[in-house]
Design a protein around this nucleic acid. Structure first.
Lengths: 212, 212
DNA sequence: GGAATAATTGATCAAACGATCAATGAGCGT
DNA sequence: ACGCTCATTGATCGTTTGATCAATTATTCC
């Protein structure tokens, strides 16, 4: 086996990989690789396959993570925790902006997050595995963002009582489903989900007379 | 280890399991058990765990299926193939019935299928694994049922051009997402999805002036 | 009731798995 | 230029995995 191997990270001008890396840099590289790897093959992916993809030995992984579970935990943190935007509530609450614009702004940002290949698949894998973090994320989502959405649409509605929580989930689910079609089922989808999102939000607001 | 074990299938009056079964009955029992088992733990579930749950030895499984993949193939057949209703197109095309009623009838039947725990989870597991059957199913769904839905809503629409295919997928996804919340994410959901489905269909038809 | 049939078992294999550890050698300071 | 440090390797352990097969025993048939 040759010692000086090439990186497969697709074109850093660096050429051959440095054999030794500073620990935090190597750790980051492993986590990044693990996110991509587990997103592709699932959380049952084998540590030897991951190591081969990273051009390191399998034993090295256990120098940086005490167990495979610890590595997966680090993947969760990278995928969930480090990517949440805390200012969505404020964005949605700002009534100086038309509700339609607020919702489109939110779903544009949000969809950029969740329509990412790695996010969508790891979320689904961990959801199926029953990960706690997953449920906490969704409960947080429903309890803050979607609840806020409900209040705002109701406040803007000129019809009877406006939507209920289940209607909000329906709007949300219809949008999320675009990402599911693309990344879970690998179906042909529009490159840009924005028009579909716009159409869904408009239909929703019009149905409750909460538009313009 | 005791020889005459009890079934855990929850209350057949039969008492102790018969030790020997006719091959086709045993085969059916294995497939049924495999569907429930793989739906719960995923397609990477171990044959020994499945065998323990069935109260048979692991080696017996390989008497009925030449490999684990062959068993999973049988699971796919049971879950997908054997549960399709071929008369949905006719149901949707029948213009002597109001479109709203047709759509509600379809989604009532369809949701009874897909909101089942086993169906939803195995569909998601196999989708993530990239199973061919999965994509074929969805392409069939889009190419026949949803395409038909598009035509019918357009025909009933009194506004400009009516929905496009992406709108139909959005309606569909919003409904499917109820099952995803329930069975994949195990979130608290309404016991009966009918009201939410009704609300979603009504909003959709009203948005395109295709109601009443 | 006893022999024939075959459904089922228990033991076992080779490969693959997560994990461990002594040996190695690349990169740094001096 | 050289030696020290520690990131990295290669070999290996104990288990678990899918799969095989001769031995066993429940069931059927006469």
């Amino acid at each position: 086996m040759d010692r000086y191997r090439q990186t497969d990270d697709g074109g850093t001008a660096e050429g051959a990989t440095r054999r030794r890396l500073p620990p935090d840099e190597r750790r980051r590289q492993i986590v990044d690789g693990a996110v991509a790897f587990f997103a592709e093959v699932g959380l049952d992916g084998k540590t030897r396959d991951l190591a081969r993809r990273l051009n390191v030995t399998q034993s090295l992984l256990f120098k940086y993570f005490s167990s495979k579970d610890a590595l997966i935990e680090a993947v969760y943190v990278q995928v969930y925790i480090d990517r949440l935007s805390p200012d969505w509530p404020d964005l949605l609450r700002d009534r100086t902006v038309p509700l339609r614009d607020r919702m489109l702004a939110f779903y544009t940002e949000y969809s950029e997050l969740i329509f990412e290949y790695e996010w969508m698949r790891i979320f689904m894998f961990s959801g199926l595995a029953g990960a706690e973090l997953n449920r906490r994320y969704l409960e947080h989502m429903g309890g803050t963002i979607l609840k806020l959405l409900l209040e705002e649409v109701r406040a803007a509605s000129r019809t009877g009582e406006g939507p209920d929580m289940e209607d909000i989930w329906n709007l949300h689910g219809g949008i999320v489903y675009i990402g599911i079609r693309r990344h879970i089922y690998r179906m042909p989808c529009p490159d840009n989900p924005a028009p579909a999102i716009e159409s869904a939000v408009d239909r929703f607001l019009r149905a409750f007379a909460a538009d313009g």
